[in-house]
Amino acid sequence: MNALAAIRSLLRTDLKVGRVVPPAGYTARLTIFTSGAMAFLAVFALALSLATGRLADRWGAELARTATVRISAPAGQVEAQTQAALRVLETTPGIARSRALDREEEQALLEPWFGPDLPLEGLPVPRLIEVIEEGEGYDRDGLRLRLQAEAPGAVLDDHTRWRAPLIRAADRLRLLGLAALLLIAAATAAMITLAAQAALAANSQVIRVLRLVGARDVYIAHAFVRRFTLRALAGAAGGTLAGMLAIALLPRAGAEGGFLTGLGFQGAHWLWPLCIPVLAAIVALLATRVAAFRSLGELT
């Protein structure tokens, strides 16, 4: 029976079915706590996955459409080669615009490492030209040859060697987040299976009585499945809310804050965690169902 059929069957079950199983017991608290804790962790794994996804997209988008030409030439030739490179860039198809960064901008780029009072004039800092692509982009090899001819000190950096490992790392982080979600689901299923088996073992006398009066295995299983599914749903709902609250209360430091402060949900992504309790309930339903039928099959 697939998950959908199991859910339909569960919803059709009489509300009184659950009453045949004695209430409370430590398995109830264990299931609620496990589901809550796992849902809490799942919210963070989801946030990590979504944040790394955003990061990979941003890095990809920002770096893919830009390039930098670096002019490293003897002091007297820097300005001439810069102008020559700019002329080459202006006449290259696929380049929307290009401009040389002024001294203040270069200083700002170096400020995080050397401080605000760096005397650039006394240092052999190369000039940088920012290149913005358009349309299908430009012919990289052709541009490199032309720059070599017109400005020998110009080096075209199309960001490939920076972008590729960054995007790869972000993609790996996103995969790690998804793997964490799967592991959390598997751990939840394992814990609920153990709790369900413990509950079934503890209620073997109840099961015996139910069988004695003509209860089919599917009826007995439903009594346990319903109970564990609702517990998992309640626990996961609490854990998810707590997780979302914790994410919402994470400090924000803006774009300069780096990756960790960007961990969280944005816009419609806040709706994603709401799936966690539903998924936890489905996992609990399937785990308890399998555990119940296996245990009932073993009980004579």
Partner: peptide, 25 residues
Amino acid sequence: DRDAVARLRRRVGVVHQDCQFLDHL
């Protein structure tokens, strides 16, 4: 099978010496 046995039990009333009940009901 188990379902058939369950249906059979509805046609056979059993009274045990130790009278098994569900004590929470």
